[in-house]
């Protein structure tokens, strides 16, 4: 295994584009190293992007949104008060990834690019309308989060393409987001179901809503019907029931060691209601 420490994304991209065998990007390493240890994937080339300037930074963008470098560990998000105030749902999704130790290393970008259907941070980013910027042989581009994962362990990036940062939009007025997952223990599990809700209120009425789900389909999904069920409502019982139904209907899970189809489908609907209440309350508390 060749270990590279490029000093720019252009250099990293060139190495990745030219690499003949299996290539992996190393940010936090909490998936890459597990796969290496478990003999699942042994890369021929491993490209550590942490020595690239700015990859560890969280910065406010000109439009009032946020740019989160590709190597920012989860703990840095949780410690960033202004980011937590704007996007508590995104931050809490990331904070649920692994242990305190894993939080010291794992990144939003890595959680996304690992391609797991159960990635805890991804539904929150989808619900937030986040984007990623990518560099590659064809030049830079910026794409929606939900277009990155395409199947279990698979992402849409081309050979030589590398995510450089996550972009969160400006929070704006009266917005709130939240994420919850179901696991059998209190910590350390992979999500059996995950639900994120991001909404905006005008007084008591919901004016915009995006709902995303995880661990219940081959990729995390945006569920427009679920968002639509909330818009125009005051989160009354009828809209919550419609939300729950839309979320359960969007589920296309598998039976596996972590949960059954019936369980996942049912619990997705249950969680959706709980998460929507949290997001709604947060939007009400926001200025």
């Amino acid at each position: 295994m060749r270990y590279h420490t490029p000093s720019s994304f252009e250099e990293a991209s060139e190495i990745a584009a030219a690499a003949p065998g299996i290539t992996r990007i190393l940010a936090g390493g909490t998936d890459v190293l597990v796969q290496l240890r478990a003999d699942i994937v042994e890369p021929d080339d491993l490209i550590d992007i942490k020595r690239i300037s700015g990859t560890g930074d969280i910065t406010r963008s000109d439009d009032g949104g946020w740019v989160i470098g590709a190597a920012v560990p989860g703990v840095s998000l949780s410690e960033h008060a202004a980011l937590c105030a704007d996007w508590p749902g995104v931050v809490e999704g990331m904070a649920l990834v692994g242990s305190t130790q894993v939080q010291g290393r794992a990144t939003l970008t890595g959680n996304l690019c690992n391609g797991s259907p159960a990635a805890d941070s991804v539904p929150g980013m989808i619900a937030a309308g986040a984007e990623v910027s990518v560099v590659g042989p064809q030049g830079p581009r910026r794409i929606a989060i939900e277009s990155v994962p395409v199947g279990p362990g698979k992402i849409s990036l081309a050979k030589g393409e590398i995510v450089t940062a996550i972009h969160l939009p400006s929070r704006g007025a009266q917005g709130g987001d939240a994420y919850e997952r179901f696991i059998p223990r209190t910590e350390m599990d992979i999500a059996v179901v995950g639900v994120a809700v991001n909404l905006r209120r005008d007084g008591a009425t919901i004016t915009e809503a995006r709902v995303a789900i995880g661990a219940v389909a081959p990729t995390p999904l945006l569920v427009p019907e679920a968002g639509a069920a909330l818009v125009g409502s005051t989160l009354d019982d009828a809209s919550l029931a419609a939300l729950s139904e839309a979320v359960s209907a969007a589920c296309n899970p598998i039976d596996d060691k972590r949960g059954t189809i019936e369980f996942r489908t049912h619990v997705a609907g249950v969680l959706a209601k709980r998460v929507a209440r949290t997001a709604y309350d947060r939007a009400g508390d926001a200025k």
């Binding site: 190393l26 936090g28 190293l33 491993l46 242990s99 130790q101 290393r105």
Partner: peptide, 12 residues
Amino acid sequence: RLVCSCLVLAAE
């Protein structure tokens, strides 16, 4: 920062 040393490469 608290980390698992099994999830850090020696070279890092």
